[in-house]
């Protein structure tokens, strides 16, 4: 094994980022998924497309525009500056915000699919038994759609761990701040340190495989459809 303290810092930073982003995403994506699953509003189509955009855009494009919006002259940048927070690019917070956008569709879509599969009936049944909307959400919808939420969390987590292009565009390569595993692997390869690159890259392969194995195994138990 050939793992340095910088590598360990990168691993730790990556995990911290992924955990935080996954938590934020579950909070943001659930209401979005709920709205998309139940609304007949004309904005449903455009919002769906917007949420799915990171699926098709090259990460560098997403990163480029996030860099501009979060920069000193961008919309988010001006907001954070007026709040006395400075600007987000090249900070850990900036990385979190960017990752949230980047991984959003991977969290929204499984939740939305799960909610749509449930249909109206459980909500109606709960209402006729005297359960209010929040009560129904926490005691009926959430437990029934749990596989969807698991899938969403795992996908959001795994996808955030694997991100590279967006990080390079808005985070750069600051050890302990924005230098995540994928960037660190790139650094090793650039420096021709193939052995150290192997350690991290191989670890990522194993990690990703295990995550998917768990996910598909779990979903087969649930008798659900393929993932994506």
């Amino acid at each position: 094994m050939d793992i340095s303290s910088e590598d360990l810092t990168a691993v730790w930073l990556t995990i911290k980022l992924a955990v935080l982003v996954t938590a934020i995403l579950l909070l943001i994506a659930t209401p979005i998924a709920w709205w998309l699953a139940h609304t007949r509003h004309p904005l449903r189509g455009p919002v769906s497309a917007l949420v799915a955009l990171p699926l098709v855009l090259p990460p560098s494009v997403l990163g480029f525009y996030l860099l501009l919006t979060m920069g000193p002259h961008g919309l988010i940048g001006q907001l954070t500056q007026s709040l006395g927070l400075g600007t987000l690019p090249f900070t850990f917070a900036g990385l979190v915000v960017a990752s949230v956008f980047y991984s959003l569709p991977f969290v929204v879509q499984p939740i939305q699919n799960a909610l749509e599969a449930l249909g109206e009936r459980p909500r109606e049944a709960a209402a006729t038994l005297g359960a209010g909307p929040w009560d129904t959400f926490f005691h009926v919808i959430l437990p029934l759609a749990r596989p969807g939420f698991y899938t969403a969390a795992v996908l959001g987590f795994a996808h955030t761990i694997g991100e590279f292009g967006v990080v390079l565009m808005i985070g750069g390569n600051i050890p302990g701040v924005t230098q995540v595993i994928s960037v660190q692997i790139y650094n090793h390869v650039e420096a021709l340190e193939y052995g150290r690159a192997h350690t991290l890259a191989g670890g990522m392969v194993v990690f990703s495989f295990v995550v998917l194995l768990l996910l598909y195994g779990f979903r087969r138990d649930q008798g659900a459809k393929p993932l994506l």
Partner: peptide, 10 residues
């Protein structure tokens, strides 16, 4: 619905 004192068998 949830504030009406009814029950419904589907």
């Amino acid at each position: 619905t949830f504030q009406r004192a009814l029950a419904y068998v589907f």
